[in-house]
Amino acid sequence: MMSKIVRTITNILYSSILIFGFYIIMHGHLTPGGGFQGGAVVASGIALVLIAYGYDTVKSWMKKSNLSVLESIGALGFIGIAFLGIGTTFFYNFLANSGGLFGDPTVIGINPGNLDTSGVLPLMNWAVGLKVLAGLGSVVLLMAYGIRKGDEE
């Protein structure tokens, strides 16, 4: 538990940080960023809350086992999407320009961007984003747990 200044700033900032991170993950195929960067930003928001409020407050709304499940879902989803294109090659982009999900053809040249383009890239962005978010968040959470145990003894 940190001082009152840190807690007030955290109350103002953390929702904005989480929304910005999810925005980076969701628009990874249109704007700079992607799964890894957005996951790192969301994990930094988790770390901010964890430092400001301590482990015991965060434990009630975020469990380490849930984060492990999320990380496994991310990794398996990434490899699964890669295997779905194995009719041609591993990591083949089978959804691009097909007209289905995320399958609109994009305009060549400078354009404002369409969220419904670029095939499997948004799905892979979400998978890698979930994986990085859960991985880095569980690292920080485990370290905070170790510090708390050290305090008690």
Binding site: G28, P32, G34, D104, S118, G119, L121, M124, N125, V128
Partner: peptide, 12 residues
């Protein structure tokens, strides 16, 4: 790849 972000299309 039909993505606007060329960096992401290379990475993924």
């Amino acid at each position: 790849v039909s993505a606007n972000n060329v960096v992401t299309s290379i990475v993924f």
